[in-house]
Each structure stands twice: as C-alpha cells, then as structure tokens.
Design a protein around this nucleic acid. Sequence first.
DNA 1: AATCCCGAGCTGTACAGGAG
DNA 2: CTCCTGTACAGCTCGGGATT
Length: 409
Amino acid sequence: MRKSTLSNRDKDIIRTLYRYRGMTAWQLAQKVHNTYTPKNSQKSMIHNYLKRLKEQKLVTSKKLEDDAGLGSIYFLTPSGFNIAKDLLNIEIGQVGDGYLFADDFESEGYHTHADLEYSIYKPPLEQIGHHLLLIDTLIKLDFLDKENLIDYRLSMYATREYQSDKGNGKLRPDAEMLIDSSRSYFIEIDKGTEGYQQLYGKFINYKHYFSQLNKEELPDAILFITDEKRQLYGIKRRWTTILTAFLNAMGSFSARVNLIFAPINMLEETISLEMKRPYYHKLVEERIRTFFINKGYSSVKFFKFNSMLSFAVAIKGNKYQLIFTRLANEFESLAFGGFFLFSKKMHIIDAEIQKNKLQRLGLEQVILYHDRKPYLPSAFPKEKWTGDQQKYMEILFNHLTYLPLKNIS
DNA sequence: AATCCCGAGCTGTACAGGAG
DNA sequence: CTCCTGTACAGCTCGGGATT
C-alpha cells in the first residue's frame, strides 16, 4: 500500500502547479523533468502521479475543448493549494514579488511567493487556450539558450493599480519578464480575439499607467505573443491592426516603449535580439558611420534628443545630412513611434545644429536589422490614423534604406 | 557500535487497452 | 490517432532490526 505522505515527485508536481496555475500533462512533464521534449515514459510517469494526486483530491482536471487542443488542464484543488503553500513555506499573509527564478535559493526575508487566495490562483477556465499559450511561452523562455538571466512572473503578481489624472486604473498584463534583472517587458498573449477598438483601449490603459511612472520605471517593451498557426495566415494583417492601435493610443510613449510582436515559434530569435540589443547598439553606430563615410561624408556624429531619441548627423564641408536610425526586428513599433517624435522635434534639432553655421542637405532614414527585415505595412488602414501620422509615414518611406547589421561578405 | 540484511516504499520504464 | 488508466516490474534508497 502506498503511504498517504507525499513523495518528492508529488511535492514537485504540486509546487509546479502552484507556480504555473494550470498546465497540461505535457507542460508539467517539461517542467518536472526539465526537458523541452519529454520522453513517452516521462509523460506516462506524470500521468501516473497525476492520477494518484487526483485520487487524493489534491489535483483536479478539466478536459480541453477542441480549439485549445487535446488533453486536459490540471490544477490544484483548494486542499492541494493549501498543501502547496506549506511546501513552499508560504506564511500567512506573506507578500512576494512572484519572480520565479530566485525561488530555489530564497534568501532571508525575501519571498517570491505570496499567500494568494484560491480564487486568484485558479486558472481562468473560460480562457484555457489563452492561459496555456502563456505557459508554453514561459516554458520556452526557460529552455532558451541564453547567456542572460531571464525571470518572469504571472499576471497575479504583475497586476498593478494606479492613479493617473484620468482616474484610477488597473493594468493586468498576462505576465512580466525581466532580462538581467533590469530590463522589463510586459507580456500579452494574443489569441486574435480582440479587435481594433479593444486593442486601442488596452493601449490607452497602458498609456495612463505609463504616464504616472518615472522615466526610469518605463518598461523596455510590450511583447505580444501569438500562436504558431497565425504565422501561416494573416500575421501581417494582425500586426498592422495591433501596430495601428498602439501608435494611435500611446502618444509620445510610442517613442520610448517598444511593441514587439512574435508568434511563439519565433520567440527564440526575438528574445535573442532583445538580449543582445545593448551590445548591438554599438555595432549600429559603426555600421552607420562606415555607410556614410563611404558615401563621401567626412564625419558622422551621434546624438540623443531628450536623452532618449537617438539620431545621427553626417557632415560634408559645411553641409550636413540628418539621419534617423533604428535597429529593428521584423515586427516592432519603435522605428515608427521614434520617427513620429523625431519628425515633430526636427525643427528644434535643426536649429541646434545650424548654430554651427552648417547647412542642411536633407533627411535620410536607415533601419538596421539582424535576422529579418522589418516589416513595414504597405497599406495602413488610413481612416484609423489620427493627427499627422499618415504624413510622417510617407516621409519615413522616402529615402529609406535597410542595412543588415552583419556585414554580408 | 558497527555491520549486514530485508522489506517497504519510491522512481522510472514498459505495455496493454479503453475512450473519444 | 492521442490521451489517459491500469498494471507489472526492476532498480534503488532508506530505515529498522538482528547479528557480530
């Protein structure tokens, strides 16, 4: 007979279900066996344990509807939930920031887990597909080949309430990710169910939240993750809708906070670019410099407007060329948002440079890319643009050069 | 007290077969 | 076909008790 005490495996499974709320047997096998592709035997072992835990009424499950895939989602019952709190040494009323990485070597006085209510823990059964795509994304992050530290926390910890001049609000991203403990990203799972108006409302909420933060507190980006199927059909159309809603809603924040869109099967290269972005910025400067020196300019200088909006100036005699430059991934917004702000501030920038008795030749845009050429929508839904954006877009497409970051030799 | 032995329970593998 | 259950079993650990 099996004793009623829990084995280490049982405990591991309960802890994992506490951290990730609800998971499929496959996802659980990935985490518990610490491999991205569990073997059949490892999977069947998880089933064995899950069955026993279900008999002990610590775990329950719900069959998935067809649209969310086959199989079941497993999660803790209220009594399993309480046992998990014991196993994780969660004290009554404990507050934790929810970041998972430090969990295994928790230091004195620092807690990752919080004493949550069961109702907050219980996975959202009406949006199972959405939740499972989130868990897939997080597990994929775990198994990335990475030299940088990536940490994340789920929405139950990432939610924040705020007060802005537009009133009180609540921001509830699906998850939040940290690279190297400092660069922060909000993660949104996109099942394609939200239309333009809902997306616009979502970004307006982000804008209100951002508007009451200090500059240093702004995240690097909002990461939109979509499922794999979308890559085959309609990804560009979907991206254009999201991008338009973002640029219309965010105002000047679209020049500071990036919006990055990636189907889950492109997560590796997207995250890999994010990890190396600070390093790549140096390469960008070298690349731009040689590009313009080769075009006959005598020197190239780099500046930042308001300590954030970077641009370059190439000088030839007493004339200069103004250069807007960005490193961009296939689907991201910063090149657009940055260019909008740059266009608005251009007269100030010009006036500053012209103090040195220089005469402007023109404006040129150079967008650098690493793996994939950035996708620039050829047709934006014009009727949705607000203000001067249509005009700026047309300027952007004028004199636009793409440069690969790596020298193609 | 140190050593040895045994068995209970834990862990992992394998396979048959039911349900959908 | 996949997901899941039921079952069998081998290897291993660990603890209790007997033997030295």
